[in-house]
Design a protein around this nucleic acid. Structure first.
Lengths: 218, 218
DNA sequence: ACCTGAACACCGTTCAAGT
DNA sequence: ACCTGAACACCGTTCAAGT
């Protein structure tokens, strides 16, 4: 899958591509390479210098495009939130008029994305990055992702299958549940805690059902 | 600014030989100082050398007691899990025969501890530390914390106020909800996402109610 | 405008040597 | 047994200088 950095045995293939002094779109290439390197290890071990080297540029070049390392990380996290919004939108659109089903699909989407980009997911919610206006793009990307959930709850209330109540609070309850499960999965905490090795889909299904039904006996 | 040992302004108070060559309980002191320094910044910026300096020992001394930096971090996280278990136990004991109330108290306890040690909380679930047998103490501390929740669910089922079902799956649903809310609070993601500035207690209460009642309209 | 190389002040970790 | 100091291979970041 990803052995890209251990060694590059046949690195002579750049003979035909005379790298010009000015790079094409260095900013985007740095972001892209950084995202890849991030998943190869973890946020603590991602280095500016390694990113620069990965795109074949001097170790100070990134500072033309990113104020510092945090700013680069904010760029990666922003992309993560955008992917999340997109996946949630797709999941919602796939089951029109079925908010309960949409919730389940949203859960799948959330977990799937998180497990395919675990380090990025950690970064997005790690508190390393400020959530205020320091990185406006990061902030709005996060808001968009939450909006996706709110839309589902709103629709469920409108057609009368979800209980009434503050939409943001209900959305937060649902998000917390999915988010908590996702981070436990990503963090690898579950295998040591559950005595049975459940499939991820079963876990999401179980949690979604509990969120809909509640814990109380009837 | 590197005058490390050339001069210390008022360092004569060690005349009574307070500091012997062999330190009292260096391991515990390192752990303690590391926990403090961690909360002063974040896990990425915590350095072995700074910890050593904080307890007044050479920067290589910590390696007598911790194999590497990760091992030190595991020690901090382990303490965090122990505190969590203890708080959950206290919360549970405070309301005997009232599992629903215990759930709410457990939620308060979880959030309270997390907000008073945010960086430690991030570390505990960051995936930076392996959850397998690499750090047995860390693993069992985590299991103990989860056990606290399972006990509440079990009791609720026993007296018939919680629905039947696999205890671990139900516990996981509950934990996910509380955990998700907690991490969103700790990560600072909520202020940018909720348009109203709720009190933490109200958020926990709202989520606990939703977990008990469920989202479905009746 | 965009990139480089040297430079500085840090890191984590190892190891021979001191007490 | 426990700690130190020098050493090594890294970092992030700055800045004068090159194209």
């Amino acid at each position: 899958m990803n052995q890209s950095k251990s060694q590059v045995p046949c690195a002579d293939f750049n003979g035909d591509a005379e790298k010009p002094y000015h790079h094409g779109d260095l900013q985007q290439e740095l972001l892209c390479a950084a995202g890849r390197l991030l998943e190869d290890s973890n946020v603590a071990k991602l280095s500016m210098r390694a990113v620069a080297k990965a795109v074949g540029v001097s170790h100070t070049a990134p500072y033309r495009h990113f104020k510092d390392k945090e700013s680069l990380l904010a760029g990666i996290a922003g992309q993560g939130f955008q992917m999340l919004s997109a996946k949630l939108a797709t999941a919602t659109a796939s089951l029109p008029n079925d908010p309960a089903g949409q919730l389940l699909e949203a859960g799948y989407a959330y977990v799937e994305l998180a497990l395919s980009h675990p380090q990025c997911t950690q970064l997005m919610f790690s508190g390393i990055l400020p959530c205020d206006d320091t990185y406006p793009e990061l902030k709005s990307a996060g808001q968009n992702a939450f909006q996706g959930l709110k839309t589902i709850i709103e629709e469920g209330q409108r057609i009368g299958i979800f209980k009434t109540g503050d939409i943001e609070l209900l959305s937060l309850s649902v998000w917390s549940g999915i988010h908590g499960l996702t981070l436990l999965l990503v963090g690898g905490n579950l295998p040591e805690i559950l005595s049975v090795d459940f499939e991820n889909r079963d876990l999401i299904q179980s949690i979604t059902r509990d969120m809909l039904e509640g814990l109380t006996a009837h």
